[in-house]
Write a protein that binds this DNA or RNA. Structure first.
Lengths: 191, 191
DNA sequence: TCAATAGGATGATGATTATCATCCTATAGA
DNA sequence: TCTATAGGATGATAATCATCATCCTATTGA
């Protein structure tokens, strides 16, 4: 074999990470094969040594995106010693930093409408990513029973997703921050 | 002249309406020139007799989309005799009917992340559509002063936008309705 | 040291698009 | 009835893509 044992797996993961950033930053069509490979430092030709087709990359990069932000939010929740963990999640999600960095943020804010339109054959996998994400968040949500926590998840994330999306359409930083702060205060006082 | 006086204006408007539906249903790239013209019953060739370029059509079709849903929501607010007008808006926005019909719905739920990514030269016009939309809604929002109503607008629309987007990602009708109902009850009891 | 080979590069193909140049034709106005 | 012309149709071009076939080469394992 030409390359060290785990070489291929590493390159594969790098492609996926680069694609997960690009797909969040530029949308489902923004992650063109040639562009992603260029990000990774390769040319477009080798792509099909790593993925059956472009949809496979999309699925993997969405998985990586949900994993990425999921980890960030779980960490925030776990490090919230004094306050309730869901409040830490809200503060991170609605922070100007995460609003600025689409490419490291939540795929829901970056892609929801596009995800709702994907071809039928991908819907199932996207849905299961969403369910996974929800299941990782629910334990930290406010409420007594799991059903309450689930309801809280949907309401809290709806508000956060919408707020970040609207903020991202605004040209002025001050207005962005005001929308985020607004949503944050509203949520923090609602549960 | 070949056609009756107002012929061109009528065709122009029909193209814009068709494009505004298609752009909401299929995204910014879904509204391909040939596809939109076919919707209108024409071929792609005549397009440039009506629009300077595709961006011009995009701007006009977004304007039409905001106008369309804006009118629907204003009508709902005005016909809400007994209850507060903002509640009527929430009920229409979060109804399963509007969740089903992306092509007649709010461009924010259909396109926010894509709108946040448009080329700089279109940002200004999109922003002013958003401001217009907000200004039409604010009078119906809860709150004493205009500043309160504005804050309410951003929070209420954030929640509604996120809820409809998340609902649209779900494969089962029951789950969709549950997310919508959830958000609706939350908002109706929060002001 | 050397050959076998898998990862990667080059280049081609066929779709899909935006954009135009050019041609066609039905009707307004004489 | 006839003709000028604007709206619309046809067809071409260049760009961007996904996908592959083919070629190249560095490294592993002997």
């Amino acid at each position: 074999m030409r390359y060290p044992p785990e070489h291929k797996a590493k390159v594969h993961q790098k492609i996926v990470k680069d694609a997960s950033r690009r797909v969040r930053a530029e949308g489902l069509n923004g992650a063109a094969v040639a562009a992603v490979m260029r990000d990774t430092g390769l040319t477009h030709g080798g792509f099909y040594k790593h993925f059956g087709n472009k949809d496979a990359l999309l699925i993997e990069s969405l998985h990586e995106a949900f994993r990425d932000i999921g980890e960030t939010l779980v960490d925030a929740a776990k490090q919230s010693h004094a306050e309730e963990p869901w409040k830490a999640i809200v503060k991170v999600y609605l922070s100007p930093e995460y609003c600025d960095h689409v490419e490291r943020g939540c795929p829901l804010t970056a892609l929801s409408p596009e995800l709702a339109r994907v071809k039928k054959n991908m819907k199932g996998q996207i849905f299961s990513e969403l369910v996974n994400y929800k299941d990782r968040m629910v334990p930290f949500m406010p409420g007594k029973r799991t059903a309450d926590k689930e309801r809280a998840f949907f309401v809290i994330f709806s508000t956060m997703v919408g707020a970040v999306e609207i903020a991202r359409m605004l040209p002025e930083r001050a207005a962005q921050e005001s929308v985020l702060e607004n949503a944050r205060d509203f949520l923090l006082h609602s549960f």
